[in-house]
């Protein structure tokens, strides 16, 4: 493992027991997150992208179960450890959730408590993870809200989530996530519920934060245009499996896997085209059989049999 990998997932599988049998939501997924970069997981609903992120924070609840794999985390100036080996209710796991890794959710209205003030909720995160007084926590929370672009922070700390607009709520979520200075920030569809102008503001904020506080982002989305704007590395998932990994330019400008090509073709473009080409909604398992990822030229991987990979990509 190279030194600049902050998080390395190896062979992760998550199983959900359902009435109709066992379902592998995440099937043997491997992923390397580079330090201070943005890694994006792209896929349709049900592809297992959120479950992968939840597994990273050990948030999988019954009937789900992590059945195999390793999640090796290497925080700055610390020994690396396997997230999956931490005991439930241990202090290390407690510190990991919120302290080392933090998460921003898609729908800020459901993620924030409607009956607590914004200030209470941001301060709760600080008081949980740091030994500071309430007055100090208030100052820290104010400073962080100010940092993410909420004007008049000390006034707005007294307000409730319903008094904030969607974009402002998402800024509060970002402030809550960043206030304990995590090293990994997981963004689960953070802009999907937002307008295009607000989305642009939030993307610009995340980018600026990434550059100034050196945080590693894991960005989960189905919006390929957002990926193009924010990601450095991209992983394409479908049906719980990784189909292709590579840099953002490789994946978007030069996709190898037919599924990735279809996904890009399904985006309504700025050019008026006759007809969109949707990805089939009943994926035939025989379409993309479970080939394992093989490395190809340009430090990327694709899950296809060698015979289907065009000659020029062969190592």
């Amino acid at each position: 493992m190279s030194i600049d990998t902050i998080l390395s997932i190896r062979g992760l599988s998550v199983m959900f027991k359902t009435e109709i049998g066992e379902h592998l939501a995440v099937n043997n997924v491997s992923l390397d997150m580079k330090r201070s970069q943005t890694t994006a997981i792209v896929g349709e609903s049900g592809s297992g992208k959120s479950v992968t992120a939840y597994a990273m924070m050990r948030l999988i609840q019954a009937p789900g179960k992590i059945t195999s794999g390793q999640i090796i985390c290497t925080p700055a100036q610390q020994e690396s450890f396997d997230v999956l080996q931490l005991a439930d209710n241990s202090d290390a796991l407690y510190h990991l959730r919120g302290g080392l890794m933090a998460m921003i959710f898609q729908e800020p209205m459901t993620a924030l408590s409607p009956v607590h003030t914004i200030g209470n909720q941001v301060m709760e995160a600080i008081l949980t993870h740091q030994s500071v007084t309430k007055a100090e926590a208030f100052e820290l929370a104010c400073a962080m809200l100010d940092r993410v672009g909420i004007a008049d922070a000390s006034q707005r700390m007294q307000q409730y989530p319903f008094e904030f607009s969607g974009g402002m709520r998402q800024r509060v979520m970002i402030a809550m996530a960043l206030v304990c200075k995590p090293q990994i920030l997981i963004c689960d569809e953070p802009t999907t519920a937002l307008d295009v102008t607000i989305q642009a503001e939030i993307l610009a904020l995340l980018k600026e934060l990434k550059e100034t506080i050196q945080i590693s982002l894991l960005f989960i989305t189905h919006d390929l245009a957002v990926v193009a704007q924010i990601a450095d590395q991209v992983m394409v998932m479908n049906q719980g499996r990784v189909l292709e990994t590579g840099s953002v330019r490789q994946i978007l400008n030069d996709p190898i896997h037919p599924y990735t090509q279809n996904l890009i073709a399904a985006v309504p473009g700025m050019k008026q085209q006759d007809r969109l080409r949707p990805v089939s909604n009943k994926p035939d398992p025989t379409d993309y059989p479970s080939y394992s990822l093989i490395p190809v030229k340009g430090d990327r991987q694709v899950a296809l049999p060698v015979s289907l990979i065009p000659e020029e990509y062969h190592l």
Binding site: T197, Q199, A200, L203, L224, A225, Q229, R249
Partner: peptide, 27 residues
């Protein structure tokens, strides 16, 4: 889309992220 006349339309159009990673979003 090609020749917006009002500033608000220009703002909306400038906020659309491009699929090309080399075209940076600059709202």
């Amino acid at each position: 889309f090609t020749s917006p006349r009002h500033d608000y339309t220009r703002l909306l159009l400038s906020a659309i992220p491009s699929l090309d990673p080399d075209i940076k979003l600059s709202p």
